[in-house]
Design a protein around this nucleic acid. Structure first.
Length: 467
RNA sequence: GGCCCCAUCGUCUAGUGGCCUAGGACACCACCCUCUCAAGGUGGCGACACGGGUUCGAAUCCCGUUGGGGCUGCCA
């Protein structure tokens, strides 16, 4: 491609959080830059005063870092480059490429034709104030060369005289975008497909400003919801921060995002970021929209969780165990959690699932799943006898996993039951649930005393007739 | 309405004219393993939107139709 190292930018509007589409766009820009040995620029598009708040920008940076996406330049703030945009606007006006317009919103509406929008009524009125509109060419066409979409042609007759500067003198994103990409020598514009229709306008501005170079464009397919619509804040869960809070690992998030619209070309899916960077090519990006499937994210996240060193898993789980836990905080015992961590790790798809898997260890009394209780104890004719036997056997046996297994298996045999059946009431009595970590390890960690207490309590609840 | 984009299993995708009776992954189902649940293993279900071309040959190229989507703001 180009002899010079590419320069790309991720230029989000600060809306208070980083959404999935933005994260994917950032990731693709970043992977491209790293693959090509180029420069990744972070630029905040906050020309709208309402968006120009520091905390909104901080959130984006924090989330990008969480995802492992770092930048080489910036963050540049468009809110701080007003002078450059004003100068550019003046040049457009002076050269006759733009004119002022004082049409009200209603007037513009009235003058909007089906084919090409605003009809340019103010073009020759010689106004000196108002919004500044770009004088779109009346004929000809602009061709956008797009790496993922090929050549896209826009007839100039379909491009209206669009606004480049607001009444208050601030630049609209089209202008700011054109000026910044030129000033920052951006070579590849990689962004969402929703920006494709605005591309000829930006190109027109650049040309009017005397910029000859044209960046390479790559319009990425949209990420859509189950109804195949562009993800929106209102109706969809789109904040990356929220996925973080739901217990997803950044590596899994990043991996899944990378697979939306791109693949390495073979059967690999779960792969390291290094491998993704090594394989990433803009030309391999697909053109069709992709649905963000949380089920698949869950599966990928589970794989990443299982691949963690146990100590890392414990550390990553801590926020979920210490912040607003389902048990009294003082009852939590890190050593106990560490003892069962490998068993929990094997089963968790998200870190958020961890507390409920181990809550029986830290609660005075376990959370009882009524359906499980009813099935394993309430309506089980053998439950009373099994629990009685367990109490007897567990009172005197060696308190270790193998021994617990052995005496329980013996007990099952005495009753002519499979161990799977025989352990059910014990599990529910002690953990409150029918599913969970392996039972005998759980009992071992819980301790004899508390195990017996819970079994006795369950025994007291069993109707006499059932024993 | 106008302009533009898109179209392979339910989903994410491989496929760039013959290797395709279309491969993988997630999800789902069955079986195996097994103290529950997971994990793992095996197998199953399941797609080239439709119609015309081009070609010896089309999921792959072209045209049309249909369907979906994006844009159409003094938001970006």
């Amino acid at each position: 491609m180009s002899a010079v190292a590419p320069r790309v930018r991720f230029s989000p509007a600060p809306t208070g959080y980083l959404h999935l589409g933005g994260a994917r766009t950032a990731l693709f820009n970043w992977m491209f830059a790293r693959h090509e040995g180029g420069t990744f620029v972070l630029r905040i598009e906050d020309t709208d005063a309402a968006l120009s708040r520091d905390e909104l920008v901080d959130g984006i940076q924090r989330t990008l870092r969480w995802l492992g996406i770092d930048w080489d330049e910036g963050p540049h703030r468009q809110s701080q480059r007003a002078d450059a945009y004003r100068a550019a606007a003046s040049r457009l006006f002076a050269a006759g490429h733009a004119y002022f317009c004082d049409c009200s919103r209603d007037a513009v509406q009235a003058r909007t034709t089906g084919e090409s929008g605003y009809d340019g009524w103010c073009r020759d009125r010689g106004l000196a104030a108002g919004v500044l509109r770009f004088r779109a060419p009346d004929d000809g066409q602009t061709v956008v060369h797009d790496v993922v979409r090929g050549e896209v042609t826009f007839e100039h007759t379909t491009i209206e005289d669009f606004v480049v500067q607001r009444t208050d003198g601030s630049a609209v994103f089209l202008l700011a975008n054109a000026v910044d990409d030129a000033d920052m020598a951006i070579t590849h514009v990689i962004r969402g497909e929703d920006l494709l229709p605005s591309t000829p306008k930006v190109l027109l501005i650049r040309r009017a400003l005397g910029v000859d170079e044209v960046p390479v464009f790559a319009h990425l397919p949209l990420i859509v919801n189950e109804k195949r619509q562009k993800l929106s804040k209102r109706r969809d869960d789109v904040a990356v921060e929220e996925f973080r809070e739901r217990g997803y690992l950044p590596e899994a998030m990043r991996n899944h995002l990378a697979l939306l619209g791109w693949s390495p070309g073979d059967d690999r899916e779960v792969m390291s970021i290094e491998d993704m960077v090594a394989e990433f090519e803009l030309a391999d990006v697909k053109a069709s929209p992709a649905y963000f499937d949380v089920k698949k994210l869950d599966a990928i996240n589970g794989e990443y969780i299982r691949a963690l060193p146990v100590a890392t898993f414990v550390r990553e789980s801590l926020p979920w165990l210490e912040t607003d836990p389902p048990w009294p905080p003082e009852r939590f015992d890190l050593a106990v959690f560490e003892a069962v961590a490998p068993l929990v790790q094997e089963r968790a798809r998200t870190l958020a699932e961890v507390p409920a898997t181990v809550d029986f260890l830290f609660l005075e009394e376990p959370v009882v799943d009524p359906v499980a209780w009813d099935k394993a104890i309430g309506r089980s004719p053998m439950a009373g006898a099994l629990v009685d036997d367990a109490i007897t056997a567990y009172r005197d046996c060696h308190w270790d996993t193998d021994e617990l297994y052995r005496v329980t298996a013996e007990m099952a045999e005495r009753h002519g039951l499979k161990l799977a059946k025989a352990q059910a009431p014990i599990r529910v009595a002690v953990t409150g649930r029918s599913v969970g970590p392996p039972l005998f390890e759980s009992l071992h960690v819980l301790g004899r005393e508390r195990t017996l207490e819970r079994l006795q309590r369950a025994r007291d609840c069993v109707p006499p007739s059932s024993s």
